[in-house]
Amino acid sequence: MLICDRFRRILFVSKMYEGHTHDFTIFKEIFAGFDFSLFRVHVDSGFYGLEQYVNPHFIFKPIKASKTKPLTSQQRQINTLLASGRVRVEHAIAKIKAFFSLRIENRLKDKRKLDDAMAICAGLANFKTKLAIA
């Protein structure tokens, strides 16, 4: 799980999880009890049910379509606007993955070292972002 600001600076990187752990499960584990009322939270469609944890006025998530109820053109436009904001997070992830150590198959026996490598790569990505902004 990664949290970044609107300038693509990485503010938080969670530890690595083995297997297929859903982002929302990680969110609940890490941020249970955290007060998000002062923040705007932009998430993807996998975070349905987040209203129980965050003030609903500050959640920005896309509208899901169903088989029986397709999205209207207005809902598609809203989703496009939300995606244009969330793409910054995807760009921050891409900056982290630009480092070769995270692109190769990892064979570390001690998975804590992978967490350290991720944190170092996030710091380097922030440093590169700071140089680009200045």
Rank of each mutant, 00 (worst) to 15 (best):
R8I: 02
R9S: 09
I10G: 00
L11Y: 03
V13Q: 03
K15V: 06
D23N: 04
F24Y: 09
F27I: 01
F27N: 01
K28R: 15
K28D: 05
E29S: 15
E29Y: 07
I30V: 15
F31I: 02
F31P: 02
A32P: 03
F34C: 05
D35E: 06
D35Q: 08
S37D: 09
S37E: 05
V41A: 01
V43H: 08
G46Y: 11
F47D: 01
F47A: 00
Q52G: 09
Q52F: 10
Y53P: 00
Y53H: 12
H57G: 04
F58V: 10
F60C: 07
P62E: 10
I63M: 07
I63E: 04
A65V: 01
S66L: 12
T68Y: 15
T68H: 14
P70Y: 13
S73H: 14
Q74S: 12
R76Y: 08
Q77A: 15
I78P: 01
L82F: 13
L82T: 01
S84Y: 14
R86F: 07
V89E: 09
H91Q: 06
A92R: 05
K97Q: 10
A98P: 00
F99Q: 01
N106P: 01
R112G: 10
R112N: 13
R112H: 11
D116A: 12
D116P: 00
A117K: 03
M118T: 10
A119C: 06
A125C: 07
T129D: 03
T129Y: 09
K130I: 15
K130G: 13
A132R: 14
A134R: 11
